[in-house]
Simulated assay, not measured.
Amino acid sequence: MNKAFAVVVCLYCSFTLAAAPVKLKVSPGQQQPVTLSRLHLNRIVTPFSAPQIRTIDQADIRIEGSVIYLSSQQEEPFVVYITPHDSEAHALSLLVTLLDVPPKEIQLSLSKQWQQKMNRNKEAAKRFEEAGDYQQSITELLSMLVKGQVPEGYELEKFYKADIRHCQQDGLTFDFSKGQVVQGHYFRVLVGTARNATEKPLTFHEKNCQGSHTTAVAMWPKNTLHPGQRRELFILLNTPDQESAPVVRPSLLTY
């Protein structure tokens, strides 16, 4: 056989035998086992526009758009949780095993059951928020939350460090380490606590918890805290639909 021809044949064989992307449909509450390369960078394509990833493994992780690049030398299998950037209610759970194999590409998609559930929740939350005018919806939402109720379609989630909105007021300490996130369609509520660390009564001022998307701030049951007293704090954020949200021009007077 001609050597040049043999080389071409060999290269062609190597190309055709390269691992094809692995396509997986995932469902909530189910852990999906996957095999990745220990020797190379792996590529995980997610159904989320800006995914977040959480794992106890000391993996090298980079996120580009909807794609996660992951490499690791971990000997034992480990779990990876992947969530959308705006919700922790549902997570894709992968049980990763690393082998000495070529680099892998995993393409994840949501099961039909999961998509339907998420769509139903979004529609129910949207109906609740659009049932009255804007101010009425905010008042009703906060009123339900202070009573320990969650509106239909809303998701109650754990509070992660990335979600913290800094509140600052002399004499008060704000704690979101065990906080909650209540996610709706247009609204998202962060729940934490405030404590009076002084030896005199203090009045909390809502303006001390402002951010670019902050719509309302409330303390329950009152804004006044006695020495050592703790109260729940609610920060309501407006998270408009990305496709229909108008572009907002910031005033030059705010700088």
Rank of each mutant, 00 (worst) to 15 (best):
K3M: 04
V7C: 14
L17A: 10
P21A: 03
K25S: 13
S27F: 15
Q31S: 08
Q31E: 05
V34K: 02
L41Q: 08
N42I: 01
N42K: 13
R43D: 02
V45K: 14
S49D: 14
S49N: 12
A50K: 06
P51M: 13
D60T: 10
V67E: 05
P77S: 03
V79I: 08
Y81N: 07
T83C: 15
P84Q: 12
D86Q: 11
A89D: 03
A89V: 02
S93Q: 15
L95G: 07
V96T: 03
L99G: 01
V101T: 03
P102W: 11
E105K: 11
Q107Y: 07
L108K: 01
K112Q: 08
K112H: 11
R120T: 14
E123H: 09
Y134P: 00
Q136K: 08
L142A: 05
S143K: 09
K147H: 14
K147S: 10
V150E: 05
V150S: 09
E152L: 12
Y154M: 10
E157N: 13
E157H: 13
E157C: 05
K158I: 10
F159P: 00
Q168P: 01
Q168K: 11
Q169P: 00
D170S: 15
L172H: 02
T173H: 11
F174W: 06
G179R: 03
Q180E: 10
V181D: 00
V181W: 02
V181E: 04
V182I: 08
Q183V: 04
Q183P: 01
R188T: 00
T193D: 03
N196A: 11
N196Y: 11
T198Q: 06
F204M: 08
H205N: 07
H205A: 13
E206C: 09
K207M: 07
T214A: 13
A216T: 06
M219V: 05
M219H: 02
P221F: 12
T224P: 07
H226I: 10
G228V: 10
G228P: 02
R230D: 13
R231K: 07
L236P: 02
L237G: 02
N238H: 15
D241C: 03
T254H: 15
